[in-house]
Structures are given as structure tokens and as C-alpha cells.
């Protein structure tokens, strides 16, 4: 009897995996990759596959941020503007003659502060985070516009290693992406902080009645998610070398879409980091594959929209069947 439950648990977990969205996603990714590779062998070259991951590095980190929020029952729609704001400030400082390091540090800390502000408003006002952060999206975007005066700002060729550098042939941004994904995976699985986020997302009342300070936890989570956005912003601005205030536009929705494709839900408490990561990979592969096949970018937008809807409908089929 001692090990009965534990053994049983491992067995069930294996069985469950094949029914899960993660498995489904892996299959879709393999089939699509084979298809693109068949249509254009260049797709499967090592260089191109690394390019895929380089292209999704920023979105991938942003998706990890969104996943943390969704699983805890929150959401942040202002992350796109945070990226723009941070990028604009870095460039402005560099152009104003500041050294790169302080510019980068401040560029990183800005989204941390934005996340803190979002967290405080969400937890203290008890308003729906969707609405609060939708409003904050305009606030941060407005700030970025004011600071940049709507102009194209440049890094003047500095700070390139994070976005364009390579480590033994692998782009540093891809290394950063994998480190972040693995870290967030363990954060949610094996840390008290992560576990409390999951429980709060599962049932906030239960978390509260169990002695968790839910306000503080929310603020901490929004702040931490802001730090991930700070990182994403550094990668983006470093890769682009220049920036407009709206550079981050759309990242909030794509990050949301990726997480949901990966099985994370709006209701909180559910979903995995691995799933969300696979969601990003799927989007990246489709975009890259369509590029290689010379499909027009207009049609790409259409296709990506379709994938999001199909993924959400398919993942809901089991639920529909149950009821």
C-alpha cells in the first residue's frame, strides 16, 4: 500500500499524456513541419529551424509572462505597450548620450514598474484585470508616444549581443528563451510561489481561506510577469536596433493566443508551461513555413487566425462532449 498510489499516479500520468492537448500539439507540429519540409526542403535546415526559434524568442518570453498571469486567474493586455515603452526609453537614453548599461537597466526596470502598478490596481480595486490592463495599455502606449514624439528611435548600433549575438552557433535570444521556459516550468511546478499561483487561479476563495495573502500574491505575480516583459523588450530592441512606440503592438494578443492554443484557460488554474511553449512554436512554424513558401503576409494573418480558432475549438471538444 505504501507505494501503491505513487506508482498508480505515474501510470495514469503516462496514459493521460496521450489524451492531452500537449500531445495533440506535438503531433500537429510534427505533421506541419513534415509538410513544409516536403514542399521546401530548406525549411528543415538547421539554419532555418534556429531562425524559427529566433523569430519566436520575444513572443515566447511574453507568452511565459501571460501564462503565469492566466494560470493565476489574471491577464495583462498592456504587455505590448510595455515593450514599446521600454524600447523607446532605451533608445532615447542611448541617443541622448547615456551609456548602454544604465539605459538597458532602466529599460528592463520600466516594465517591472508597469507590472507592479497593474498588480496594485487589479488587487486593490478588485476590478476585472481584463479591463484594467486594457486601459493601462493605452496609458503606457501614450507615454511611449510622448517620450518618442512618435519618431523612429535608434540604438545607434549598440547593444546587439542579446538579439543578434550567437553562442557556439546558437542565437543568444534562443538560449534566453529556453532558459526562461525551463525556469517558468519549474517555478509553477516546484516552488511555493508557483503553487500558490495555481491554487489562486483554481479558486481564489480557497486560497484566501487557506491563509494566502491573495492581494500580495497578485502584485508579486504582475511584477514578476513585468520583469519577463522587460526581458522580452530587451531582446526585441537589441534585435531590431531601432524602435517605434508601437513596436510591441499585438504581442499581448499573440501571447494570449499562444497560451490558449497550448491549453491554458481564461478561468485559471489550468494549463502547462510546456503547452504554452508548444503554442508559440506552432505559430512560429506556421509563419516561417508560409514565408518560405512565399505565401503573402495577408494570407498568413488569415491562416494564423484560423489556427487559433481551430485549436481552441478542438481543445474544447472534450468539454462539450462531457456536458
Amino acid at each position: 500500500m505504501e507505494t501503491h498510489l505513487l506508482e498508480d499516479f505515474a501510470k495514469r500520468k503516462r496514459a493521460k499524456f496521450f489524451r492531452q492537448q500537449t500531445f495533440f500539439l506535438v503531433m500537429v507540429i510534427i505533421v506541419l513541419s513534415a509538410l513544409f519540409g516536403f514542399l521546401n526542403p530548406r525549411f528543415l535546415s538547421q539554419g532555418n529551424l534556429l531562425a524559427v526559434f529566433q523569430q519566436i524568442a520575444v513572443l515566447g518570453i511574453a507568452t511565459m509572462s501571460m501564462t503565469l498571469l492566466l494560470i493565476s486567474g489574471g491577464i495583462d493586455l498592456s504587455i505590448g505597450s510595455m515593450i514599446g515603452l521600454s524600447g523607446v526609453v532605451i533608445c532615447k537614453m542611448v541617443m541622448g548620450g547615456y551609456a548602454t548599461l544604465p539605459a538597458v537597466v532602466i529599460g528592463f526596470l520600466l516594465p517591472v514598474g508597469c507590472g507592479l502598478v497593474n498588480g496594485i490596481i487589479v488587487s486593490k480595486s478588485k476590478c476585472i484585470p481584463l479591463i484594467v490592463t486594457l486601459g493601462m495599455n493605452y496609458v503606457y502606449y501614450g507615454l511611449a508616444l510622448v517620450i518618442s514624439q512618435g519618431l523612429f528611435l535608434s540604438l545607434k548600433g549598440k547593444f546587439t549581443f542579446l538579439g543578434r549575438g550567437r553562442l557556439g552557433g546558437v542565437p543568444i535570444s534562443v538560449v534566453v528563451l529556453f532558459v526562461v521556459v525551463i525556469a517558468i516550468h519549474f517555478l509553477l511546478r516546484n516552488t511555493k510561489f508557483g503553487r500558490r499561483l495555481v491554487v489562486m487561479g483554481g479558486n481564489e476563495q480557497v486560497a484566501f481561506l487557506s491563509g494566502i495573502n491573495v492581494d500580495r500574491l497578485k502584485i508579486a505575480n504582475y511584477t514578476f510577469s513585468g520583469a519577463l516583459i522587460g526581458l522580452a523588450s530587451l531582446v526585441l530592441v537589441s534585435r531590431l536596433g531601432n524602435i517605434l512606440a508601437n513596436a510591441g503592438e499585438g504581442y499581448e494578443l499573440r501571447a494570449l493566443a499562444s497560451a490558449i492554443i497550448g491549453g491554458v484557460t481564461f478561468e485559471g488554474g489550468r494549463g502547462s508551461v510546456l503547452g504554452a511553449f508548444l503554442g508559440v512554436v506552432l505559430l512560429g512554424i506556421v509563419q516561417n513555413g508560409l514565408n518560405i513558401l512565399n505565401v503573402s503576409s495577408y494570407f498568413q494573418t488569415f491562416t494564423i487566425g484560423l489556427i487559433i480558432v481551430i485549436a481552441v475549438v478542438v481543445s474544447n471538444l472534450e468539454k462539450v462532449r462531457k456536458t
Binding site: 503553487r195 495555481v198 491554487v199 479558486n203 488554474g269 489550468r270
Partner: peptide, 15 residues
């Protein structure tokens, strides 16, 4: 208010 229904037995116990 008693349980996070979508979470595991273990998670509900150790909160």
C-alpha cells in the same frame, strides 16, 4: 469555497 475543484487532491491538501 472549500475546494479548488479543478486541482488535484494533493494540491488541495497542502495549500
Amino acid at each position: 469555497t472549500g475546494l479548488a475543484l479543478g486541482l488535484s487532491v494533493a494540491k488541495n491538501v497542502t495549500i
